[in-house]
Design a binder for these strands. Structure first.
Lengths: 162, 162
DNA sequence: GCTTTACCTCAACTTAACTTGAGGTATTAG
DNA sequence: CTAATACCTCAAGTTAAGTTGAGGTAAAGC
């Protein structure tokens, strides 16, 4: 009963988000609810994990659009199992590693490049980082619009490795 | 002559940004220009490094506001030297390290937490990461609004260590 | 049974970091 | 000298991820 009778308010409190955020996630297709006789939202308990996973993914810098696409890999009819979630998790771990590696490269070349003045030159490792990542024929691109939108992961093919 | 006679177009092309971006950066106080007789912007060559450093900092996830504050530490009257830039760089390296460490913690606890269901619980290491970072009396906070604005670094005290 | 919460919808506002466009002036190439 | 660029200003638009508020209904507490 309480298993499929969560109200927005309870979910919001439990997950530490606003009610409006849950409404918003629903319009984005990230979570789902059914309505009771009085047109109020009711949730199954698994919404809690969904919201928590959304929050965790956001901390990794993954956009809602990419999260939605990742969720698309979850079973549609049955409630996702632990294995389903772990699969998702492993996928994101790969992205997280790529992201960490990217920041490490940035860190390691930062002082040298800022100091030497090569930053505005064509052969600077920092300056050309995007170009390398975005090079054609070089496998799926991991980071999208790096300089523009705060290192968000690309929506269109999040999860590809190599 | 060409040392202080860079036009917006030339700077834009050299730095790989739009002219409108340079206008924008100027309104934000990130770069400066003088005007020629016909009211057109002219730049000193050091604008190239400034723009490049802005771009590098953005790749680290540092906001323009924080970048502006960091630039405030640069000399106002003379053109910044290599040492000036290196100082800035070292400051950001510390933030970059903190950011990398944060993502590593997230990665290492991700699969376990997503799988075990603790994500929505109070004792989950991922779920409570923000709280730990934001705990009072625990030294300066490094990451701000982590879950909200894609891990941007805090504006108000960017650069503080430990 | 009534009053306080909790919900509902829908539109508009918020911030960051830019971009786009309109209407007009300067510079440059030939 | 003139046509093609390049610039100028200022206002408005864009995206992500929500938040805020108005006007109205449902459910819960006592």
């Amino acid at each position: 009963m309480s298993d499929s009778n969560w109200t927005v308010g309870k979910v919001a409190k439990r997950c530490g988000v606003n009610v409006s955020t849950l409404h918003f996630y629903e319009t984005k297709g990230l979570i789902r609810s059914w309505r009771n006789a009085g047109n109020q939202r009711r949730y199954k308990a698994d919404v809690l994990r969904r919201v928590s996973v959304i929050k965790a993914a956001q901390k990794m810098g993954i956009s809602l659009t990419a999260i939605k696409q990742a969720f698309a890999a979850l079973p549609d009819q049955r409630t996702p199992t632990v294995k389903d979630w772990e699969k998702l998790s492993r996928r994101w771990q790969g992205e997280l590693n790529a992201r960490i590696a990217y920041l490490e490269r940035l860190r390691d070349s930062l002082t040298g490049c800022i100091g030497c003045g090569c930053l505005s030159m064509k052969n600077c490792p920092i300056y050309n980082e995007d170009d390398k990542l975005n090079a054609e024929g070089n496998g799926p691109v991991i980071l999208e619009r790096v300089a523009k939108r705060l290192n968000q992961f690309r929506n269109s093919n999040a999860g590809h490795q190599q």
